[in-house]
Design a protein around this nucleic acid. Structure first.
Lengths: 335, 335
DNA sequence: GCTCATCGTCGAAGCGCTTCGACAATTCGA
DNA sequence: TCGAATTGTCGAAGCGCTTCGACGATGAGC
């Protein structure tokens, strides 16, 4: 294994000079730099990560804790992970993968052992036990999602409140007056996953502002529950013409159920969804939707983390504005 | 930050003794071990990962390179990743996440810098440029999938040949005589992804052995292509009663297309699929299927890697036997 | 022409851990 | 009962790198 002293000897300089060429922390003459670089290439030198971490107390690795809880959309998680890795690599960092299962102990372990310099945690709950831990750690972290108490933390997420509102506005703009929201399963609200409630709030608010009538109905993620709910909704509110669905697995079922009940989509009832673009695009009827910008969240999370590592100040909260993409499932209100 | 010397002082022993208590590489008296452990707990000591890696030339980290190429089933990849992380943790190792994008350079980087002790590579192609690299590396690796030339490598995967054969046998046992296989998109075979062709081989072989008539039809992963193919198949082979589908995205479409053509499933035509269990279970008509045992592949891959790290001999090829789960989509042949 | 910065480089001191050889103290075998 | 083997512990060396202070050489300012 070739080490820094080998490179130094080969280039006729001292090891420290090689180090400075690599890190750029001191000025080195053009000429020397060239020679050192050539030697590095020629010998195929790679700094030993452990030695580097020990000497510099920087591992250049960030931890990424991913959820695998059922109910968390897997493809979104993957896209997110991918974007984190890609962004981290741009900053010359690697990513250590942790599962939610490892919980607080896992985070503490990798942080205290200096395995990682910083941490990214996904799928943050309102009252998340990892939050106090992260706060106590001496390493920077970024949370995807907002806990109830976000003081002293750096959080980022889609602006779900705005997303809910955007959907309501979209329906309003199309002339709908009677709308409803089909939400996530009740336990999601009880678990206080934060973002779920934010959607309902934003939706309700915008509904009110635009003088529409609308209410929110949590719904289990099963086809039967969806069909039942749609049936009931149409019975109770025959004039209903717009629905926001925030429950990925059943969006398709909702559309089918409406058709089964004799309502055309979008002619009779318009549908808007909050779900990944793939789902919206590949639905039988492509869905007007607000996407979860997984790539951007991941990339931005890493940028925030790097800034914190540099000691730069970063905003405590980053809310990404929602983008509503109109597709075939929504149209101007009938009548 | 508390270090080994602090623990040593607190416990009234030398640092080396603490180290031996931790590693168990030399015998330590019960009494001393107790004292040291108590001090470790009391001081909250965590060995510095970098220092440890430097001194022992072992980082206790394994690299995991995941595909994000479209066409690779995302949920399966996630389950696989999860099982790798979980298994690695059981062996006191962590997992560094690499994307396929990083390619050979990425593998070389983490290996040569001693960031990782070993590597796991997924989604191996027949002629995979990473294979010669892995061979040249001085660190053990395990491949998920089989390249064309697997000499000196450790590979593991579902036995796709046996899976194809099992499906044919299943249809034969139900009394079907005229069968067909709807395969993956043509480019998958051209890319020589190995496993795809193995399925067709196993299928064809078993079809022959059981005296059935059957052929293989690659198919694009689009609803239209699936419908066209089904229509054509039924026209050309009116007596067809059994189909193996090895093309995850379109299994559902195939069933619907059959029904649209007036064939009942399973009364008129039986369907067997090779796909993740979730897909098979959640299909409109639950599908008889051979699952991709992602969890087991991941776990076993790690076990193999750990054995190699210990210098133990491991089998060059591990083929996991397929398990066919009969569900509603297949039944005894009509007539 | 002399002082004072600045620049480019070097040497040495660690970073926190593992591991090897050494060495008492104890146990064992005959 | 005595030497040999074993057990439990220690001290020191060293893993490969970064970083700090030092220092000669050069250039700028007066």
């Amino acid at each position: 294994m070739v080490k820094i002293t080998d490179v130094a000897r080969h280039a006729g300089v001292s090891p420290s000079t090689v180090s400075y060429v690599l890190s750029g922390k001191r000025s080195i003459s053009e000429e020397t730099r060239r020679r050192v670089r050539a030697s590095i290439r020629e010998l195929g030198y790679r700094p030993h990560a452990g030695a580097r971490a020990l000497a510099s107390s920087r591992s250049n690795v960030v931890a990424l804790m991913l959820p695998l809880r059922s109910g968390v959309a897997v493809p979104v998680v993957m896209r997110f992970a991918t974007s984190v890795v890609t962004a981290a690599r741009r900053h010359d960092h690697d990513v250590l993968l942790l599962t939610q299962e490892e919980g607080e102990d896992g985070l503490r372990r990798v942080a205290d052992s200096a395995l990682v310099d910083a941490l990214i945690v996904m799928d943050v709950q309102m009252r998340d036990p990892r939050v106090p831990l992260l706060r106590s750690l001496d390493r920077p972290s970024v949370l995807i999602g907002f806990p109830a108490d976000a003081d002293d933390l750096t959080c980022i997420d889609l602006d779900f409140h705005a997303a809910g509102a955007a959907c309501a506005r979209h329906l309003a703009a199309l002339g709908h007056r009677e709308v409803a929201m089909i939400g996530s399963p009740p336990e999601v609200y009880e678990r206080e996953t934060g973002f779920a409630r934010r959607v309902t709030d934003g939706f309700a608010e915008a509904v009110r502002e635009h003088g529409m009538t609308g209410d929110v109905h949590p719904c289990e993620a099963s086809a039967d529950a969806a069909k039942d709910l749609v049936g009931r909704l149409l019975r109770e509110r025959p004039d209903l013409t717009g629905i926001l669905v925030h429950n990925e697995p059943i969006v398709d079922t909702v559309v089918r159920a409406l058709r089964a009940e004799g309502r055309r989509v979008p002619e009779d009832v318009s549908i808007v969804a909050i779900c990944p673009d793939e789902v919206a695009e590949h639905a039988e009827t492509p869905l007007s939707s607000v996407a979860i910008p997984a790539e951007e969240v991941g990339g931005r999370a890493v940028e925030l983390l790097m800034a914190k590592l540099e000691g730069e100040p970063v905003p405590a909260a980053t809310l990404l504005p929602p983008t509503l993409t109109p597709r075939a499932s929504s149209g101007t209100a009938a009548r």
